[in-house]
């Protein structure tokens, strides 16, 4: 229970999630408050994406409900950053075109973008340091630039919560560090509520404040120190896991096994 005045943004109440008759997660409950920085972690196939889709409102729970709080101005708005590899585009959309899509939700199906919308787009581009590439074609960008463009699009929608799906997947070390730094900055300087799905525990461990561990029968919500324990991770991945500390960062090592 939260005794502070921090607004509750997302609340899952005894939710079962799945597709058709196939139940993937059952009886899960959690709360996310304004200003939280939440990581959703779990092994491949554990249901991270399923949970994300439910929070986004794309997947209806089989049982229970996910309640979304009121937005700060108008209806509750989610800024979603999908996995960039899920966007396989042949059309020559420019970075500006893509970020403008972030305004479409506010504009509705018919209304055309105004000068105000163009201003908000430029602001979002500037916020993630890509104003100089706004006329470049999205399909010709590097992985890091694409990710920044998708984050700018989410910011252009003026979201109550930023939700990112595997934001650093498939990136080199430098791009990964830069994107994680950007996400941390959006949370700490702008006070944005962030939910991030990642299978890279090191990314999550050094950034988020709260963790949701997704696995049927082992679903847990808590702080990083409560969740990322050797016992939890050994059970989760079914191999012995050791956790150490290096320069204030968690180092997680697992013994190899055949997969």
């Amino acid at each position: 229970m939260n005794f502070t005045s921090t607004p509750l943004l997302i609340e899952a109440r005894s939710v079962d999630l799945g597709y058709g008759k196939k139940k993937i997660l059952s009886g899960i409950s959690f709360s996310i408050y304004a200003g939280d920085f939440v990581g959703i972690v779990g092994p491949n196939g554990s249901g991270k994406t399923t949970l994300l889709r439910a929070i986004l409102g794309i997947l209806r729970p089989l049982r229970g409900e996910i309640v979304l709080g009121g937005g700060s101005n108008g209806p509750f708005r989610v800024g979603y950053v999908p996995q960039r590899d899920s966007i396989d585009q042949m059309m020559p959309f420019t970075v500006h075109d893509v970020v403008m899509m972030g305004r479409f939700g506010k504009l509705g199906a018919v209304k055309l973008p105004s000068e105000e919308d163009r201003k908000k787009v430029r602001l979002a581009l500037n916020h993630v340091d890509i104003e100089d590439i706004m006329d470049m074609s999205f399909k010709e960008l590097s992985g890091g630039q694409k990710q920044r463009t998708l984050i700018a699009r989410a910011l252009a929608s003026e979201p109550d919560v930023l939700i990112l799906d595997e934001p650093t997947n498939g990136m080199d070390l430098a791009s990964r560090a830069a994107i994680m730094e950007l996400i941390r900055r959006l949370h700490s300087l702008d006070g944005l509520t962030v939910i991030m799905v990642s299978h890279l525990l090191s990314d999550v461990a050094t950034s988020v404040k709260k963790l949701i561990l997704v696995e049927q029968g082992l679903f847990q919500v808590g702080t990083v120190d409560e969740i990322l324990t050797e016992e939890n991770l050994s059970k989760l991945y079914n191999v012995p896991v050791s956790i150490g500390d290096f320069l204030g960062n968690k180092i997680i090592l697992a013994e190899p096994r055949n997969v």
Binding site: G57, S86, F104, G105
Partner: peptide, 8 residues
């Protein structure tokens, strides 16, 4: 997918 989250 993102369009769905934005009311489309």
């Amino acid at each position: 997918e993102t369009a769905s989250t934005q009311g489309f």
